[in-house]
Amino acid sequence: MIRKNISGKESNKLLIEIKNAYKTYDNGEVKNQVLKNLSLQIEQGEFIAILGPSGSGKSTLLNMIGGLDQLDSGEIIIDGNSIQKEKDDKLSQYRRKKIGFIFQAFNLIPVLSVYENIVMPTVLDGSEIDEDYIKDIIEQIGMTEFCNQFPSKLSGGQQQRVAIARALANKPKIVLADEPTGNLDTKTGNDVMKLLRDGIKKYGQTLILITHNEEIAKMADRVVCLKNGVLENWEG
C-alpha cells in the first residue's frame, strides 16, 4: 500500500469510513458474494486508486460509496454521517451535493448540450450556477468551443472530459471515477487523468479511482487492491 498526499499537505480529516461491508448479489441461481467484511478509511483530499481483476467488487464498492446501492451489512460513513439505510430522497441529495461520478462509458445525457451536461448536477441541486467556476472548468478541459454541441458529436476523449467537468461542477467533496480511461487510448487516457488530477488538486477534492492500469494507479496517493471482495496490499 502506497501512501502519499497529492496536495502535499498533511490531512487527517477522515471523510469516508467503510466498516465491515458485506454485499452479495443473488441472481436466483448463484449467490455471488462481492464484498466480504471490507473496511476502508479515506481522508479528505486523498487520491485513492483501487485495482483489482474483473468481478472483484471494485465497481460495487464505488457504487456503495456513491449511494447507488446498499450494503447487506456493515456501514458507510461519509463526512461523519452514515448513508446506510438512508431514504432515496436523502441519497439523491447526497449524490447531488457530495459526489461527482465519472463513468467508463462517459454516460452523458444525449438530449443536453455540453454546457447543460456539465451544469446538470448544480441545476438538479437547485443551487446558483457559479459561472466563473464553470467557465474555468470548461477552459481547463478545453471544451469552450464545444459548449453548445451535443454529446453524440464529440469524440470519446472529449466526452470523457465533459464527464470530468460534470463531476467537478457542483464542487463535490468526493469524485468517484470508474475506469475513466478504460474506453480511451493511452495518450487520451493520460490527458484525461492529468485533467482529473489537476482538477481535484485545484479544488481540494477526494478522488476514488477504479482502474486496471497500474501506471495510472501509481498517480494516486494510495493504491489498494481488491480481490474477491477483500482488500489486499498492492505490491506494484
Binding site: A105, S113, E116, V119, L124, P151, S152
Partner: peptide
C-alpha cells in the same frame, strides 16, 4: 451509445439552468 437518438440539428437557444424549469426542459427535449 445513444440508441434512443441524440441527433439535434437545431441550435441551442435556451439552456437548462434552473431546477424549477429542468423537468419541463427535459420533457421538451425528449
Amino acid at each position: 451509445n445513444y440508441p434512443e437518438g441524440s441527433f439535434f440539428k437545431k441550435k441551442v437557444t435556451k439552456r437548462a439552468t434552473k431546477r424549477k424549469k429542468l423537468i419541463n426542459f427535459l420533457v421538451k427535449r425528449n
